[in-house]
Nucleic acid binder design. Structure first.
Lengths: 224, 224
DNA sequence: TGAATATTCAAATGATCTATTGAATGAAAG
DNA sequence: CTTTCATTCAATAGATCATTTGAATATTCA
């Protein structure tokens, strides 16, 4: 861990440190690992599977993320559990995401092609949802796998994983508005859930981001 | 510009785009160029000199920053003027900085060794300063070079560049509190200005960040 | 039109990063 | 106390990045 290191110039040394943190964010696989680690404490094996990486590769990326302060690790028996370093990490990822959404042609393409949903599915902001929940006017639907739901969820949410959704439509109200959410702003689960439910005639919208952002904002959650 | 590109997986393609933006932040020289570009529109030559880089090298880095949406460029006669891409860029840099300050050992070392000022000089937050200015209780001192002052400054600030400060102490009030600022949170000019002025018996504090952040926050500025 | 100037492009070299392999660690279970 | 299992370390080859050099492009000024 040295980089273009400090020519004994304190300011340059400092900026190299900042650059090292940005460098740790600068890989798709690591961003994906961060998204999964943000759901709660997960083992290396778990995270590797979730991100579709080989075990050793995930381990290397996680070590790098840890050195940059983006994740924390804790030893529990013979496994190591990784979790997000702190709320600033979500801020950094969100800021980088916003820049890419606005300025990177590739990103805009993918978004308009696969996630036009952004407008089409009328995402609900955190504030709006929080306000509406105080009036009890919404059914909260968590479409993540049960293991992640178990680690923590929005207070009052019910869990129907996307995979089982088609079989369990009868658990959802027809009249009331539903808000679906999952891991974060580009987690595909909730996009697909909204598409499917709309097709079946439900009144449903998507939370614009996910559980980690909700929790980081200090809004009500139920812990695992 | 491709990276570990998309295996036709839209989410992965998107995350690779985000990673490309982070990658553009991931170099000390580029962070320094961003700091200078954040003061206002500057030519490549100017920015190269300010960041202590060769001309060609600065040009390359700036092109890379532009592709990532972190800076904008505009042609004016035979020069190209670069400026910050948008306010999200300052957010991203600030988030990365906060992570490094908390977690990267190198960064903590440098800060405590050269910038203990952070505590010792009792930095003033933007909000606090804005509130105090409404009560007219402060002299605002901009210690950047005149060229940058000319591009924009906090409303009501006077410009005494650090280099000339010692010769121009008589322009500063003895009783009233002074707040010094410069380019950003780790711009050394204001640190040194505060140290010097305190030694001379002035009542002076530092603004915790600089002109670009003040402007991005929508607080009152005077344009160039 | 032609010379001067600011910037970008193209190419090349050395440095750094990624992914994989197989060995090493260290805690738990038999 | 040996075996097993989850993870990390060490070493490697291939890919990408940083910097420099010299040529190419545009725009102004004569």
């Amino acid at each position: 861990m040295s980089g273009p290191e400090s020519t004994s110039n304190p300011k340059r040394a400092l900026y190299d440190s900042f650059a090292a943190v940005a460098q740790a964010l600068a890989h798709g696989h690591r961003l994906e690992l961060l998204e999964h680690a943000a759901q709660g404490e997960r083992s290396v094996e778990d995270l590797a599977a979730a991100a579709g990486l080989s075990f050793a590769n995930a381990s290397q990326h996680l070590l790098l993320l840890r050195r940059a302060g983006l994740v924390r690790s804790r030893k529990d028996g013979k496994r190591v559990l990784y979790s997000l370093g702190g709320p600033d990490v979500l801020d950094a990822v969100a800021a980088v995401r916003r820049i890419a959404e606005q300025s990177v042609a590739d990103a805009r393409d993918v978004i308009s092609r696969y996630f036009q949903a952004r407008d089409g599915l009328e995402p609900v902001s955190r504030q709006e949802l929080a306000a509406r929940l105080r009036r009890k006017a919404v059914t909260l639907l968590d479409v993540r796998p049960p293991a992640e739901f178990a680690l923590g969820r929005l207070a009052g949410a019910i869990n129907i994983p996307l995979k089982t959704l088609l079989r369990r439509l009868d658990e959802l109200p027809r009249g009331k508005e539903i808000v679906a959410y999952c891991r974060g702003p580009y987690c595909v689960l909730s996009f697909e859930a909204v598409a499917l439910l709309r097709q079946k005639g439900f009144k449903v919208r998507r939370l614009e981001d996910g559980y980690p952002e909700w929790k980081a904002a200090g809004l009500p959650v139920q812990a695992g």
